[in-house]
């Protein structure tokens, strides 16, 4: 059996022949068609024309801005820059470049006053608590502006973050529509290239920029390239951990990834409701969100 771990895995085509499929090589034309149709359809279905999103200067929010501009027209998209006083100046500059290139409208809301006011009473709060608070503050600003704009909030969480739980619940994980939720980080990079996102945004090390010099891969302890392959094999291909090992990944690494996925399941679900009645929201009151839309 042919195998390659440098970005590809063997797949079987319909004739049963093995062939190399590189999960990092999505069909970007097709993905752009689906995602722009998705944004347009789901925004217009609720009677809206507009969308708002937070622009961090990172690749995920940049890609969503490009997609939204194509789907709704740049005049119908509001990008909101929400720096904190320690945010990297490069992040703000990169977000500004996305605004210029896509032609979307933008606003800047400095979240330092409200964050500092709150933590004045919580001086011992950890970086993680401060970061989570900032993520939720940004969510709160976006939802407020979405009401003023009569717009839906676009999320920017990718599949890697969702599966690993690498995001703040009710913070950056909160949105009305999440166009990138079924694309791994490495696939987002590819999509970014196809959309013409500036190379410096694609090439810089991914960071939540919640504190100075934070880096995703440093914090997680592995690279997106590696974890995306393991997730792809476990989740998309439904291989067992033993089978994933045959692709050359260490058992400890696979176990760590599985652990992260399992302990973060709560972040991917709505709050639990205690069932008491015959028919309960969240249990057996089953309607899509698009009900009647």
């Amino acid at each position: 059996m042919n195998r390659s771990l440098s970005g590809g895995i063997v797949w079987y085509d319909r004739q049963g022949r093995s062939k190399l499929v590189d999960q990092f090589h999505i069909n970007t034309d097709l993905v752009i068609t689906i995602l722009t149709s998705f944004i347009r359809a789901e925004v217009q279905k609720v009677g809206f024309q507009r969308a708002v999103l937070g622009l961090s200067g990172g690749v995920d929010s940049s890609v969503v801005a490009y997609l939204a501009a194509r789907a709704l027209g740049p005049g119908n998209v509001l990008g909101v820059l929400m720096p904190y006083r320690t945010s990297s100046p490069q992040s703000v500059a990169d977000a500004g470049e996305v605004v210029r290139r896509t032609g979307i409208r933008h606003r800047t809301v400095d979240i330092s006053p409200q964050i500092d006011a709150y933590f004045a009473g919580e001086p011992d709060a950890s970086n993680l608590r401060r970061g989570n608070k900032m993520a939720r503050e940004r969510m709160s600003v976006l939802y407020d502006l979405s009401m003023a704009e009569k717009a839906l909030v676009l999320g920017t969480s990718n599949k890697t973050e969702l599966l690993l739980g690498y995001g703040t619940q009710f913070g950056d994980l909160a949105s009305a529509l999440n166009p990138l939720g079924d694309l791994y980080k490495t696939q987002v990079w590819q999509l970014a290239k196809a959309l013409g996102v500036p190379p410096q945004i694609i090439e810089k090390p991914p960071s939540a920029d919640l504190w100075p010099d934070q880096s995703d891969e440093g914090e997680l302890g592995f690279s997106y390239r590696d974890v995306d392959q393991v997730l792809f094999l476990l989740v998309d291909c439904r291989l067992t951990p033993e089978q994933v090992q045959e692709w050359g990944f260490a058992p400890e690494f696979i176990a760590r990834v599985q652990h992260l996925v399992r302990i973060s399941q709560y972040k991917r679900r709505l709050p639990l409701i205690a069932k008491i009645s015959q028919r309960s929201v969240g249990h057996d009151f089953r309607y899509l969100r698009d009900w009647g839309a």
Partner: peptide
């Protein structure tokens, strides 16, 4: 439902057309 974006065309389309 359309799914499968790793090939030259949509995975679901390939299967149905086959």
């Amino acid at each position: 439902p359309g799914r499968g974006v790793l090939g030259p065309s949509l995975g679901s389309a390939e299967t149905w057309y086959l």
